[in-house]
Design a protein around this nucleic acid. Structure first.
Length: 362
DNA sequence: TAGGCCATCTGGTCCT
DNA sequence: AGGACCAGATGGCCTA
């Protein structure tokens, strides 16, 4: 089993070597290739099993400032956000620029770009690749967590997608503009009695084709182009006429909500939307922290898939190893395990938690 | 195709 | 009162 290779290499490192590695790999250093992967560097260039610490140059906003930057969502590009919930649930179109104070500004381009289902945050390295135009044409291979950044569709050239953490759109323009245009609309939209008008699959496909036709096509974009606009994406409070506007790419700022919104918890729909945005930001912050942690722990390869749970497990094992090497014992039972045992445990954890993916062309 | 993982929405609870 | 935090529900994406 190829997996044994890194383990062997890992175990071949003496404590002194590891200590040297650790010292070299200071917390401020992004060059993690000198870590556990030092013994497996010979396997780089295709060997997925090579223990590797992915570099974090250009690491996302999670730096010295931590994830604080997440809150700084002011004046960020907007994007359409597809509601993943059932169509019977209130859905929305995120297309506003928001400030940290919750102020939103309608953005005319909100409904002009193709849609993406989800923002998936990945390492900065991957993000950098995806964001550059040439790379857009060739997304990072063999990366299950390849970024799917909705905003790319709105703005072809995007800064480091890692910064997408910071610029999460937040509050929807559609609703915002609607509220602005109709201040009397204060009813929450969460619970509606009327189902929204449904766009046909054909209409949706046409719309997306039109929207994506003007932008370079990458595998990613092609994938997106195949997607359709579910009716759930559209605010349930929109009329059929408004729906047609959305489908035709008209300025949705002119759209207006109408009737039959109900209250819950005395919270208006606008506030609910804002709360959703905050919640997304909060979760993104957590995800960013996981991503940072994922890069801080050893792995066989950058392509190794580590779930959040796996990241935590590996991190715990890794911390214990480092603490033992530092003469401390952070084990739960204060059993003072040997360094060798700790290293073996780390290796085992990585093997257990990691899902090494082999490149398809290899 | 089933299962795992994850993003998103939502409402409840707690805190400031 | 409003925001943070949390957990449940839901659905999309990906892989075996």
């Amino acid at each position: 089993m190829a997996v044994a290779q890194p383990e062997k290499l890992f175990m071949q490192l003496s404590a002194a070597e590891l200590a040297a590695i650790i010292m070299k790999d200071s917390p401020n250093s992004n060059d993690r290739d000198a870590g556990f992967c030092s013994a497996s560097s010979e396997s780089e260039g295709g060997d997925d099993l090579a223990v590797e610490h992915t570099t974090r140059s250009g690491s996302p906003n999670i730096g010295p400032k931590g994830t604080e930057d997440f809150g700084a969502a002011d004046s960020k590009p907007i994007a359409l956000i597809r509601n993943k919930r059932k169509s019977t649930e209130p859905s929305k179109v995120v297309g506003s620029m928001t400030t940290s104070s919750g102020q939103a500004h309608a953005c005319p381009s909100a409904a002009t770009g193709p849609l993406k289902k989800r923002i998936r945050y990945t390492s900065s390295a991957d993000s950098a690749v995806v964001l550059t135009p040439p790379a857009i044409a060739s997304p990072p291979p063999n990366r299950s967590v390849a970024p799917t950044l909705r905003m790319e569709q709105e703005h072809e050239i995007m800064p480091n997608p890692a910064h997408m953490f910071v610029r999460h759109p937040g509050v929807t323009t559609l609703h915002r503009s609607a509220f602005a245009a109709h201040p009397e609309q204060q009813e929450p939209l969460a619970l509606v009695t009327k189902k929204p008008a449904q766009l046909t699959e054909e209409d949706n496909t046409k719309t997306l084709k039109n929207r994506t036709a003007q932008t370079p096509k990458s595998t990613f974009h092609k994938k997106v182009a195949k997607e359709t606009i579910p009716a759930s994406l559209i605010d349930v409070s929109l009329s059929d006429e408004d729906m047609s506007k959305v489908g035709s790419g008209s300025d949705i700022s002119s759209l207006r909500p109408h009737s039959h919104q109900r209250n819950y918890k005395n919270m208006t729909r606008e506030r609910r939307i804002e709360a959703n945005a905050r919640e997304r930001t909060r979760v993104h912050t957590i995800s960013a922290a996981y991503e940072t942690l994922r890069h801080a722990v050893p792995a066989y390869a950058s392509t190794q898939k580590l779930s959040k749970l796996s990241v935590l497990r590996v991190a715990c094992s890794y911390i214990l190893t480092l603490s033992r090497m530092a003469g401390e014992d952070y084990s739960a039972d204060q059993s003072e395990p040997s360094i060798a045992d700790c290293i073996e445990a780390v290796t085992s954890t990585i093997q257990t938690e990691g899902k090494v993916k082999r490149k398809k062309d290899e």
